[in-house]
Amino acid sequence: MTHAPAHDTVSSPFEGILPGAPLPYFLRNGEGEKSIVFDTVFDILLSADETEGQYGAFTTIGPKGDRIPAHQHPTTHEIFYVVEGAVGLWLDDQADYHEKRVLEAGDFAFVPKGIVHAYQNLATSKIFGVGTGGFERFFHGIGTPTDSAEIPTRPYIPPFEQMLAAGQKYGTVFLPEFSFRD
């Protein structure tokens, strides 16, 4: 039995993949709500709809690449757990905490709300992430739907307007002028 997602009354390409309510379910490897953002596949495994707004869970898989732009989430806590590969992670509280770490398979990081951060895949990497409920849909807002769990051969470059709209809707503030202490 499929359930229409509670987050959207209009048909979406993701309709019926997740239950849309706090019901038990299982996903096989590669199943979930997938979107391409640049050269990375984001796969939502659990959304705020299933957790009554508490949290969402997702994976990313992408190739070695450039650091994503500095940004912060005013209301979202986020975790990074590296499943495969290696990821550079920059954190800055804009006061006295400045940190850059390389996370390898099995390493974990917590990014509290309000912390400026960015990451970079230093090799082909898979990350498991969890964020405050609702944030997970940011990846759909900024990306384009896909059925493939594979790293895309053609990246999806979102128009700037799409990035800004997704940021406003899902609580992401882009800070293109921010400079991390490397």
Rank of each mutant, 00 (worst) to 15 (best):
L46S: 00
Q54M: 09
T40E: 11
T146K: 11
S125V: 08
I44M: 14
P5I: 14
G62S: 05
I115E: 02
T2Q: 07
G85S: 01
A95N: 14
R137A: 09
Q54G: 11
Q72D: 07
Y55L: 15
G30S: 11
L18S: 03
K34D: 04
A86Y: 00
V10A: 15
F135C: 10
F58L: 15
Q72K: 13
Q94P: 00
M163L: 11
N121K: 01
S148V: 13
G16S: 06
E33A: 13
F80Y: 15
E150G: 05
Q168M: 09
T2H: 06
A105N: 09
L103N: 05
L103M: 12
G62R: 02
G16D: 02
H117S: 07
H3S: 13
T172K: 12
G114D: 03
Q72C: 09
G56Q: 10
E78G: 05
G129T: 06
G129R: 09
I36P: 03
T9P: 07
E52P: 00
A105P: 01
E33D: 04
G53Q: 08
L18F: 08
G114K: 03
E161N: 08
A118H: 02
I127E: 05
S125H: 07
V102I: 15
E84L: 05
F135M: 15
L45C: 07
E104S: 13
E99C: 11
A118N: 07
L103P: 08
T132L: 12
K64T: 00
P24G: 00
D107W: 01
F108H: 01
P22I: 10
G65I: 04
G85N: 02
F138K: 05
F138C: 07
A118G: 06
D92W: 10
A21E: 13
G133N: 13
K34V: 12
R181N: 12
G134A: 12
E104Q: 12
Q168S: 13
